[in-house]
């Protein structure tokens, strides 16, 4: 317990020290997923990341300017320093200025954002189409178009769940690992159709820059094109009942050859359901 408290103290101090400068420094920490978005693994995720940083910087600058004025005023215009109150209370000029300038700033934000929305929404010309179906509380996947067509499996949390004592830390991928991950080839446009059987879920993989609600009875879609190999983890991002926190998503991005091999293995497996021993997914290439 004391150990714990000491650890906590240390972390508190560390974090508190970080608080002030954190936003300013966040760019350098971009790679460190602890303070900011995870490292992008697709063009879209990178665009989102850039837009996000652009927003932070603009907001930070406005924040510093606006509160620079305020804190200067607090410092200089206080009664205890003998300040005498001026009586002005109107100025059409400044009112117009501080209406027009923010509008211009907003235009500067809206412009790149609009372009990204249009790109995000363009799900045409996909190489591979996968349907992701949310269930309480697991994901079902059907490869319905492109290489691998016909593959179908269910993906559930593989983390052993149980009561943990205070101070007992679980494994690295706790709650973020599944039995049957989604496997996709690198560099291909993958279209994900989302839907659900019971309630709304959401299919979210941060590093790929996608999040799409899965709505029972309806089909929605999103897409990504992974630009590096690796294992990318996500979670269900819409409250879906008791085990909402326990239906993660794991996407393995692999080379085209590995993908072909995986497809072949899966096909074989479904051809011989007797040998249904779960085929291990190829681990990330890196």
């Amino acid at each position: 317990m004391t150990n714990n408290a000491a650890l906590l103290m240390k972390k508190t101090v560390q974090a508190a020290a970080g608080l002030g400068g954190i936003f300013a420094a966040s760019a350098t920490w971009a790679a460190n997923s602890k303070y900011n978005f995870q490292e992008p693994a697709s063009r879209m995720a990178a665009d989102i990341h850039d837009l996000h940083m652009w927003m932070i910087w603009i907001c930070l600058i406005i924040f510093v300017v606006v509160f620079g004025f305020m804190f200067y005023s607090i410092y200089a215009h206080r009664k205890s320093k003998g300040a005498v109150a001026a009586q002005f209370h109107e100025s059409t000029t400044v009112e117009i200025l501080w209406t027009v300038i923010p509008v211009l700033i907003l235009v500067g934000m809206a412009w790149p954002a609009t372009k990204t929305v249009l790109a995000q929404k363009d799900t045409t010309n996909a190489d591979i189409t996968i349907k992701a179906t949310g269930y309480q509380w697991k994901w079902g996947y059907d490869y319905i178009k492109g290489e691998g067509e016909g593959i179908a499996f269910v993906s559930t949390l593989s983390t052993p769940r149980g009561q943990l004592e205070f101070g007992e830390y679980p494994g690295e991928n706790y709650l973020l690992e599944v039995d049957n991950p989604v496997v996709v080839p690198i560099g291909k446009k993958v279209r994900i159709l989302t839907t659900a059987q019971d309630v709304i879920h959401a299919w979210w993989v941060p590093a790929l820059g996608v999040k799409q609600d899965a709505i029972p009875g309806f089909i929605r879609d999103t897409w990504f094109r992974a630009d590096r190999e690796g294992v990318f983890r996500g979670v269900c991002a819409e409250l879906c009942g008791k085990d909402h926190g326990y239906m993660p998503i794991e996407v393995h991005v692999v080379s085209e050859e590995k993908y072909a091999a995986w497809v072949a293995a899966q096909k074989q497996k479904s051809a011989a359901p007797a040998a249904a021993a779960a085929q291990p997914a190829p681990a990330s290439a890196s």
Binding site: M70, S73, A83, V94, W98, T99, P102, V103, L106
Partner: peptide
């Protein structure tokens, strides 16, 4: 953000050259 900003700026302009406690 625009009308909300107007409010924030007006508050700060109220404080500006006041005699604050």
């Amino acid at each position: 953000a625009v009308p909300t900003g107007v409010k924030v700026f007006n508050w700060i302009a109220t404080m500006w050259r006041g005699s604050m406690t």
